[in-house]
Design a protein around this nucleic acid. Structure first.
Lengths: 106, 106
DNA sequence: ATAATACGTAACCAAATGGATACGCATCAT
DNA sequence: ATGATGCGTATCCATTTGGTTACGTATTAT
């Protein structure tokens, strides 16, 4: 689409597998950029760009410690995703229920 | 990135707001393409392309009824998203808990 | 003071994304 | 049989995305 999409939602942020992996890592505790970058076969600037996106959406926060920048998970914004996905849960549980009763009717 | 990303995950599928809106609509029941398309200020082919993406990821299914194609929500694949997001829930609940005890210590 | 370290940013680029229009093909109404 | 309806696909295009290398800046080590 040639239009200005400007979709800066957290859904876009977690669409990228590298960014999800970064978040998964930060769930185990804060980490400086070098440690995050060393886990991927990408250049460090690439990771910096991913971190910027996560930062601007307040999914992570940055704390400067000396020449390091320690990133920390700020999961509050991820709540939007959970709020969106959870209503669908009823559906697949219902589908499982249907399958169960179908099998029991055999 | 010039590489072949080939990231055909459901996370990409729900990154687009139009596709999320389509899924939200289908949660209220199956619908033919025209009804889905009329809800957006996009051309019908654009909606067809969104539906194709959702179809190929098995997030929706298609049933032909005469000249209509009725789309139905198949939420099983969305479980991956729920499984990914739910562990983060503990974090923001914990953050809320910390805030609560902080306030209570005042 | 100088070099090394830890990062961010700028500029650039190929591929992917998401839109539009034009067209084709069944299916239904007349 | 003929036209209208419902939908997918092909082609094209601007924008976005996500990578790279080169460079700049602040902090620490020597």
């Amino acid at each position: 689409m040639p239009q200005a999409e400007q979709d800066r939602s957290v859904f876009r942020a977690i669409a990228d597998p590298t960014r999800r992996a970064i978040l998964d890592r930060l769930r185990r505790g804060p980490a400086p950029v070098n440690e995050l970058a060393s886990a991927f076969s990408q250049s460090r600037p690439a990771i910096s760009k991913h971190l910027r996106i996560l930062r601007e959406l307040n999914v992570v926060s940055e704390q400067r410690r000396g020449r390091q920048r320690v990133y920390r998970l700020e999961p509050a914004e991820l709540k939007d995703v959970a709020d969106w996905i959870l209503p669908y849960r009823d559906f697949w549980q219902q589908s499982l229920g249907n399958l169960k009763s179908y099998l029991e009717d055999e």
